[in-house]
């Protein structure tokens, strides 16, 4: 594999528009080569609109970044499908499909796309099928390991000679589950329909612990995330061997220095509270030292 590219994943939390704008201004100046933009978690979040994302996308593209527009993960209504269709009109950018509805739409439109991490690709057959429909890059489901990726690449190579880029979620709170229920609203005893976009009060999530004080999950609206930060900074060598792109997912803009740690040739030490289990085919919450 060639040198590992660093991508800034879509922001998974609900941030104020001014904060998000500052974030992308900083990303513009960073060494990240690729930036994903768009609301992927909750269709009700509207602090930043598609037009805002498009303004930032244009700036980032002018600054030489590869821009990818990310689509919503859980689409439950025809209004959300209409939003998806609006998004897909901006063909100058690559798209990240986070649901099969997006795969279907982009295939119909003949546009290339990235397969996001919440789409179930577990084998080379499935990836080959998507490649024939227009997928050019695949972000592996977060629960899979380096060994799984290697085996899948071998299977893919036997089935399909279309080029494929491999991206691995490498830093940040792991997106683990999506629900009909908003867990942030539940914490406040609010019905989801009257949620008041309460998740904006928790721009890096709500940490949930066991009764023994062990951090387990991070609640982010309808999304349940890992309670610890996943961090493959010490696994850069194996990442570079099998992947093309490392996705970093940020929970505030002060974290952007991690881009440098992933870009540089030096190996940066993983903070002891960060986890890396999935990459090593053990429980995600655990660490391989």
């Amino acid at each position: 594999m060639s040198k590992l590219k660093v991508a800034v994943g879509p922001v998974l939390f609900l941030w104020q528009k001014t904060y998000l704008e500052q974030f992308y201004n900083k990303v513009m100046l960073s060494e990240a080569e690729c930036v994903y933009l768009g609301e992927t978690v909750c269709g009700k979040r509207r602090l930043s609109r598609l037009n805002d994302y498009l303004v930032w996308a244009e700036k980032l593209a002018k600054a030489g970044k590869e821009v990818v527009l990310s689509s919503l993960t859980l689409l439950e209504s025809s209004a959300q499908l209409q939003d998806l269709k609006r998004l897909s009109q901006h063909k100058q950018y690559l798209f990240e499909a986070n649901d099969l509805s997006a795969v279907q739409l982009l295939y119909q439109l003949g546009l290339p796309f990235v397969i996001g991490p919440a789409i179930n690709v577990y084998n080379g057959y499935t990836l080959a099928k998507f490649a024939k429909m227009g997928a050019v890059r695949w972000v592996m489901p977060v629960e899979l390991s380096k060994d799984w990726l290697l085996a899948l690449q071998q299977e893919y190579a036997q089935l399909c000679d279309l080029p494929m880029q491999y991206e691995v979620f490498s830093y940040g709170y792991l997106p683990l589950a999506y629900s009909a229920r908003c867990f942030t609203a539940r914490y406040y005893n609010l019905a989801k329909d009257q949620c008041e976009l309460i998740c904006q009060k928790h721009p890096s999530g709500l940490i949930t612990q066991s009764q023994e004080g062990q951090a387990l999950f991070n609640l982010n609206g309808i999304q349940t995330m890992s309670g610890h930060i996943y961090n493959l900074c010490e696994d850069k060598a194996s990442l570079s061997d099998v992947a093309d792109v490392a996705r970093l997912s940020f929970h505030n803009m002060d974290e952007l220095s991690w881009i440098e740690h992933f870009v540089s040739d030096e190996v940066y030490q993983r903070p002891s509270e960060h986890i890396n289990g999935f990459w090593h085919q053990i429980a995600g919450i655990q660490c391989q030292l």
Partner: peptide, 18 residues
Amino acid sequence: MAEGRCYLSSYLTGESPN
């Protein structure tokens, strides 16, 4: 959770429905 899109079990145990 949206079935098939939940990795909570593998997060704690290494094994999931998928």
